[in-house]
């Protein structure tokens, strides 16, 4: 039983670590601010969840795992608000997103 928990922890923590490193690369190599926000959001959601669930498997059913769950809930509530505030501030400041995709027909309208 302990072995299964250990293996599950290994898998979850390794997946979270790989996702975090991908996030770091994404922050470096994506072309503009808006696409980088997507990469940052990846670390906020799934990587946090994977690593903290992996840790809580090791701590067992105790106050520690409840605290881990509380951290996850806090991050899930606060991170979209921060991302939205960042995107909104960049948009109001007039940063144009680089659109080379299919949806370029709707140009961003300027509102103060």
């Amino acid at each position: 039983m302990d072995l299964i928990l250990d293996i599950a922890t290994w898998v979850l923590l390794l997946a979270g670590s790989i996702l975090l490193i991908i996030t770091g690369f994404g922050l470096l190599r994506l072309p503009d601010l808006y696409t980088r926000i997507h990469a940052g959001g990846m670390a906020d959601t799934l990587a946090t969840f994977l690593i903290f669930v992996g840790l809580s498997l090791q701590s067992g059913l105790s106050l520690v795992s409840v605290k881990l769950l509380l951290v996850i809930v806090f991050i899930f509530f606060t991170s979209p608000t921060a991302s939205y505030a960042l995107a909104q501030a960049g948009f109001v400041a007039g940063l144009k997103p680089k659109l080379d995709g299919f949806g370029a027909r709707e140009q961003p309208k300027e509102d103060a």
């Binding site: 996702l19 991908i22 996030t23 690369f25 994404g26 190599r29 994506l30 072309p31 808006y34 696409t35 997507h38 990469a39 959001g41 990846m42 959601t45 799934l46 997103p97 680089k98 659109l99 080379d100 995709g101 299919f102 949806g103 370029a104 709707e106 961003p108």
Partner: peptide, 26 residues
């Protein structure tokens, strides 16, 4: 949904030439 989208974005970061198609819509 978050799980599926994370895999999507990770693919996009690793192979940007193939998947990166940013767009803005309402």
């Amino acid at each position: 949904e978050i799980f599926k989208a994370n895999v999507d974005v990770a693919k996009c970061v690793l192979f940007p030439k193939q998947f990166l198609r940013p767009s803005l819509f309402t």
